[in-house]
């Protein structure tokens, strides 16, 4: 009984849906504020995302006739399920994830791809040219960033010698952060480049380039369904930041400052916040690339860095 209750508590409250949404929406609010200041604007308040989400949720649910299908309606929900599940598999409050001994890094890699695939399905089933072009671009981009992303994860796995994420965190607690290991620094950079593409941020916001194809796959979405997509995007930002923290920045560490114990979740929040800030800065100092240029960049620079790291790890003891 307790186990079942615990499972629901984990998936719906902490670190699942409620916690992830609150933090994710807040992070994107901060991201928008920082962007505004970098652009010499005042910008919206940092809680603007909550307001936007609430407003979209309260709107009428309209589906265009050409888009009426189970796929179109189910895509945002499946994506939301996938990102919340990843939250359960990440070490958030302690080195142990909420769901222990259920899944390893391979599953996380799979789950992290589901939002992108749902977005593509949503775009293709929306029945509009902007949705189709956006989905096609996303498919191409997926094959670009995913290689660099996965090879950098493999480099970490080889270094640690385990597929278990809590083992990766445990390894770092003993031997220091992987970030400080020079062999894996190229992998970290490749990981950031991959994350920038996964989160559709400039210079890789090609699938939803607003001046070219309106909003890409999301063009035909509106109201509550769009709100859920926003939520998925915001949680995904938090999840990928959390994933990088677990792999490279030592995961959540419990500190003791002046006798008082600071829980691991605070450490997690600070580290993920810093990673979100880095991606925010990058997205504000560049122009958007074209899809062929992005692909070329991923398969030369991104893949090169990731493979370099893997070779270092394998060759240099």
């Amino acid at each position: 009984m307790i186990e079942v209750l615990n499972f629901f508590l984990n998936s719906l409250v902490f670190p699942g849906l409620l916690f992830a949404s609150l933090v994710g929406l807040l992070y994107i609010g901060v991201d928008r504020k920082v962007t505004a200041h970098m652009q010499n604007r005042i910008g919206p308040p940092i809680w603007q995302e909550y307001l936007d989400f609430g407003k979209l949720m309260g709107k009428e649910d309209i589906t265009p006739r050409a888009a009426q299908s189970v796929l179109f309606n189910a895509a945002p929900l499946i994506a939301l399920g996938a990102v919340v599940t990843v939250m359960l598999l990440l070490p958030v409050a302690s080195p142990q994830p909420a769901l222990t001994a259920v899944a390893d890094l391979i599953v996380i890699i799979y789950l992290l791809n589901i939002p992108a695939i749902c977005l593509m399905i949503g775009g293709y089933s929306s029945g509009g040219p902007f949705g189709s072009v956006g989905a096609a671009r996303h498919a191409v981009q997926l094959f670009g960033y995913e290689f660099a992303f996965i090879v950098s994860i493999i480099a970490v796995i080889v270094r640690v010698g385990s597929l278990d994420i809590s083992a990766v965190v445990g390894y770092q607690a003993q031997r220091g952060w992987i970030l400080l290991d020079w062999r894996l620094v190229p992998a970290l950079i490749a990981m950031f480049i991959g994350a920038q593409g996964k989160l559709l941020r400039v210079p890789f916001d090609i699938p939803e380039a607003e001046s070219e194809i309106v909003h890409g796959p999301l063009t035909e979405y509106s109201g509550p369904k769009l709100a859920i997509w926003r939520l998925v995007y915001d949680i995904e930002t938090l999840v990928i930041a959390g994933f990088i923290v677990a792999l490279f920045l030592g995961g959540p560490v419990t500190h003791t400052i002046g006798g008082a114990q600071v829980p691991g979740v605070v450490d997690f929040l600070i580290k993920t916040f810093l990673i979100v800030l880095v991606t925010t800065v990058v997205r504000n100092i560049m122009a958007r690339l074209r899809i062929d240029q992005a692909l070329k960049f991923y398969w030369t620079f991104g893949a090169f860095l990731a493979i370099l790291s893997l070779v270092f790890v394998l060759v240099v003891p």
Partner: peptide
Amino acid sequence: AAHQIGFDTLFMLAWR
């Protein structure tokens, strides 16, 4: 033009 190529920061600064 900066906005069209997704460079919104340059857009805002040029208009400033």
